[in-house]
Each structure stands twice: as C-alpha cells, then as structure tokens.
C-alpha cells in the first residue's frame, strides 16, 4: 500500500512533466541563444573590466541559481520530512547534482575572470570562499543521498542535512565575511558597488532567466529518471 501511495503523486508528475519538458527545453535553448548573442554582440566592453565582463554573463547567473538551488533542496527536505511528500525525495536527488554543476561553473568562470582582473586565479575573498563551501555542501548532499543500500534512508538523511545546511549557510557567510575583514585583503574590485548600466544589465537578466529555465528543465528531466529508477528497483524487489 505504501508503494502505491508513493507512485500516486509521481504518476501525476510524469504526466505534467511529459507535457512541460518540451516547452521548458525549447525556452531554455532560445533564451540561451538570445542571451549569448546579447552577451557577445550587444553588451559593450566594460570600461574597467574590458572584455572580461562577458564572463560575468555566465558567472553571475550560475552563482544566483546555485544559491537558490540549495534553498530549493532545503525546501524539498522540509517537504519530505514534514509532509512526507514522496516526490520531494526524488526531486532533491535530481536537483543536487545540477546545483553542484552550477556552483562549479561559478567557481571556474570566476577564476578565469580573477586572473586578468585581480592578477590571480584565486583569492580567498569572502564571496569565493562562501561559494566553495556551498559547493562542498552540494557534494555532501549528493554523497549522503547515495550512500545507503536503502534509497529511502539516503533521501531522509540528505533532507536533514539540507535543512541543517540552510540554517548554517548564513552563519558560514557571516563568519567568512568576518574573517575577511580580519585579514584585510588586497583591494578587491567590487562589482555592483557602482550602478550597472542597462546595456550590461539586460543581457545579464536574459542569461539569468535562461539559466533558471535550464535548471528547471534539468530537474524535471532528472526527476522523471529518478521515478523510473525507483520503479525499476521496486520491480526488482517484487521479483525476488
């Protein structure tokens, strides 16, 4: 009976997903093409950052959606633990690697931006360090959810971890900021201190929406896969 209940919601999800996925995938592709076109041909070189400002168009959206992605994981964790929503576990399993990929993208592109702008591949600046910790939190979630013979146990353990992580994340952010003031780093150029001109802002926003749609598309698709995988496991158990 419990198994039937677990499938009831996923079946509805799959009908929804089958209809939504082509649209979200198509929208992602169009937005990415438009966003990249604007990033390279519409946005002018920045007077300070020159052409390297073009890295920002992938770097900043990746940073935003990886952070939002972790909040999403925590929300799914609450949905699983509090409301016992069977789909939440599968969706968290689907979303965590996507969030990790976004965080990795943010870190690597930031490194390629930092080399010409700061003169170094990496600085232990507050934002970079927080993003690195966030990347580790994603890795921990992925590893924990897949570390058990019983997938349900991994789902619940990872859900608890995500909730603790989302409480701890602001504290980590605060501690890293505090640590940064303690060590008085070499003058670091701040983005966003000055108002961003609309010729930069609009491509950035288009890319941000494109990355959001990419996140949604990947999570929908991967959740479908996880549902299928769970059904295979249940069939294998039933056959025994």
């Amino acid at each position: 009976m419990a198994g039937m209940h677990a499938l009831a919601n996923p079946a509805r999800f799959q009908r929804f997903s089958a209809r939504a996925l082509p649209w979200s995938a198509g929208l992602t592709a169009i937005l990415l093409l438009v966003g990249l076109y604007m990033a390279f041909f519409v946005a002018p070189p920045d007077y300070q950052q020159k052409e390297t400002v073009r890295i920002m168009f992938v770097h900043v959206p990746a940073a935003w959606w990886s952070m939002a992605g972790y909040a999403f994981l925590a929300g799914l964790g609450a949905a699983l633990l509090v409301w016992k929503h069977p789909l939440a576990a599968l969706m968290a399993r689907a979303a965590a690697p996507v969030g990790a990929a976004f965080a990795a993208t943010c870190l690597i592109t930031g490194s390629f931006w930092g080399r010409p702008m700061w003169g170094t591949w990496w600085v232990w600046d507050a934002r970079l360090t927080s993003m690195l910790v966030l990347f580790f939190l994603f890795l921990g979630h992925i590893a924990l959810s897949r570390a058990f013979d019983s997938p349900e146990r991994g789902d619940k353990a990872a859900a608890i971890l995500a909730l603790v992580g989302v409480i701890n994340l602001p504290i980590i952010k605060f501690s890293v900021d505090w640590w940064n003031t303690l060590h008085q780093p070499a003058s670091v150029m701040k983005l966003g201190g000055t108002t961003i001109h609309s010729s930069i802002l609009i491509p950035l926003l288009v890319m941000a929406v494109a990355f959001f749609m990419l996140f949604v598309t990947l999570v929908l698709m991967r959740t479908e896969t996880e549902i299928g995988r769970r059904r295979l496991e249940m069939a294998a158990l039933a056959a025994e």
């Binding site: 939190l137 971890l161 504290i171 980590i172 501690s175 890293v176 505090w178």
Partner: peptide, 26 residues
Amino acid sequence: LTLGARRGGALMSLLVLPLAVPVLIF
C-alpha cells in the same frame, strides 16, 4: 546521518567539516 552508510568515515568528514567552517574561523 551516516549510520549504516557505505564509506561512513570519509563521508562524515565531507558532511561535517564544511558545517564547522565558522568554528574554525572564529
């Protein structure tokens, strides 16, 4: 969290150490 997990020890460090960053910093 890692009770009964495969590779418990290394996994536990991966989970706990990032959460313990503020303790180290302060």
